[in-house]
Nucleic acid binder design. Structure first.
Lengths: 204, 204
DNA sequence: GGGCATGTTTGCAGCGACTGCAACAATGCG
DNA sequence: CGCATTGTTGCAGTCGCTGCAAACATGCCC
């Protein structure tokens, strides 16, 4: 017997999975906005009202696994060893994460496409990214011994998150070696942005 | 006679101002969510349906001046002189902007408080910040001679925007000299983040 | 000043996300 | 088998937002 809990729990989990699966299928076929909660409920064979016992909003279905990922990430950063910087831990986490998640899988593709083409979902995604940024900022702030909401940790968090976002964004070559993208990003952050020094006046 | 256009235009502008004023007053008093569009319409003495001829969404009222600011900013960056870096132009723009906008005015205070306490508005604000980030990224990309959506411009844009956001966020001292905040941020970006080098193992 | 084109305001009906509530059903447990 | 707990459902309602078509105002030309 698997280490599952009571029958009740398993049933709930199965229902939840069904909702996600059917909903995503509908989103893919008709688009996010054109799919109503009633449609999803019908497809998952539950009452419309019941949908909201499983997900707070229609959007939440698309990001059903975000909370878990975020929490694991926060835990990973918090539990890093004493000689490990935030950046070390961040890089390690990305590597781990990429090992178990195939960014090229049809599911990831479809989800990404959906988010990319739906404003409401983009907004939600930015929320999620902001949460990641805050976690990184918190860790960096601890490292620097400054307040969590001070300037530099926030900037580092924002920049790091935009680098993570570039992973999804990578349009071809990069996906072959996503870790390289991360390394470039971290090197860029650490090395400074002095690519932006004064530019020469036009040679005329 | 002022250089105003026809009577029609002026009337529309007055109605628009009235909506903004009355809506903000209601938001402050009752909160954003607790204020309905019907309430705003009643306060501004228009039909509920008419509200949507002026603003696409209830949220748009809070950010009624964003589009103009963003466009002016984009224009400023695009029109910068040949020996001016993106960072130079960014700094100059902030200085200009701070001269005409008083961040400590009751209006800014109230608006900021509203955004800070309303999730829906925070999401919208992130949209706006993302727009700024994209503009900065575009400019930086041009400077570096790389594609607009490549890694480094995006990171710079994100970091710069988070520095701008820190301006709003500044809870006391910083507001006395906001330009100093910007200078610190830009110096940080340019100088690199090597505050984050490997941290010493505990001396044990 | 009398029309006429054009732009604005309004009411109405309707959709869809989401909520509170109360009845009902299933489950877990002694 | 009964009982408490937890999950499911239907109902009625609120609110943001939209399409449509009828009234209404304005600018303009004759």
């Amino acid at each position: 017997m698997p280490p599952t809990a009571g029958l009740r729990e398993r049933k709930k989990q199965r229902t939840r999975d069904t909702i996600v699966r059917k909903a995503m299928a509908l989103f893919r076929k008709r688009g996010f906005d054109a799919t109503t909660v009633a449609d999803i409920a019908a497809a998952a064979d539950i009452a419309p009202r019941t949908f909201f016992a499983y997900f707070e909003t229609k959007e939440a279905v698309v990001f059903h696994d975000f909370d878990a990922i975020r929490d694991r990430f926060a835990e990973r950063l918090r539990a890093r060893s004493a000689d490990e910087t935030t950046f070390d831990a961040l890089r390690a986490w990305v590597v781990e994460w990429l090992e178990e998640e195939d960014l090229l899988s049809p599911q990831h593709e479809a989800r990404h496409e959906l988010v990319r083409t739906t404003p409401a979902l983009q907004a939600r995604e930015r929320d999620n990214q902001a949460a990641f940024g805050a976690i990184i900022a918190e860790s960096v702030a601890g490292e620097l011994g400054v307040p969590v909401d001070s300037l530099r940790p926030r900037m580092v968090g924002a920049a790091a998150v935009s680098a993570l976002a570039a992973l999804d964004h990578a349009d071809a070559a990069a996906l072959e070696d996503p870790v390289a993208v991360v390394d470039e990003a971290l090197a860029f952050l650490q090395g400074g942005l002095d690519v932006l020094r004064r530019r020469p006046a036009p040679s005329s």
